[in-house]
Simulated scan of single mutants.
Amino acid sequence: MRLTDLPLRQPAYVDMIDWSAINASEGQRLREFGLCEGASVEALNRGRVFFFFGHGPVACRIGRMTIAMRRNHAAAITVRTGPDGIAAEKTA
């Protein structure tokens, strides 16, 4: 499931990131925030200004850091929940 579809406050883990959907400088910034495959992530809030158009930002927690990211960046992130995600974090 995409990060944009993750229910609010549900812990998940990054499964895959489509870096080609994110320009290089913005991708580098997200990497510096700790966004990588296997990182814990949680959607906290979605911007309401453009909610019906799907353009508002997504506030999320990556590890222990809270950031706001563009919705198109969040849509490029595939996450997983449940036992598979827990096992991945324990081995990392």
Rank of each mutant, 00 (worst) to 15 (best):
L3W: 02
T4F: 05
D5L: 10
L6Q: 06
L6A: 11
R9C: 11
R9S: 14
P11R: 12
P11K: 11
P11L: 04
M16L: 12
I17H: 07
D18G: 04
W19I: 12
S20P: 08
S20N: 15
S20L: 15
A21W: 12
I22H: 09
N23E: 15
N23C: 09
N23W: 10
E26R: 15
E26D: 10
G27Y: 07
L30Y: 14
L30S: 13
L30I: 09
R31Y: 13
E32M: 15
E32C: 14
G34D: 11
L35P: 00
L35H: 09
L35I: 11
L35R: 13
C36Q: 15
E37F: 05
E37M: 10
G38C: 13
G38R: 14
V41M: 13
L44S: 07
L44H: 08
R46S: 10
R46I: 14
R48N: 14
V49G: 11
F50P: 01
F50W: 11
F50C: 04
F51L: 13
F51H: 09
F52N: 13
F53A: 12
G54L: 07
H55Y: 10
G56R: 08
G56Q: 06
P57D: 09
C60F: 01
C60A: 08
I62Q: 03
G63D: 05
G63W: 04
R64W: 03
R64M: 04
R64P: 00
M65V: 06
M65L: 09
T66Q: 14
I67V: 13
I67Q: 02
M69G: 03
R70H: 07
R70M: 04
R71Q: 03
R71F: 01
N72K: 05
N72W: 05
N72L: 03
H73T: 06
H73G: 02
A74K: 03
A74G: 05
A76V: 02
A76T: 03
T81P: 00
G82E: 02
G82Y: 01
G85T: 00
G85Y: 01
A87N: 00
A87G: 00
A88I: 00
E89K: 03
K90N: 02
K90V: 02
K90E: 03
T91G: 00
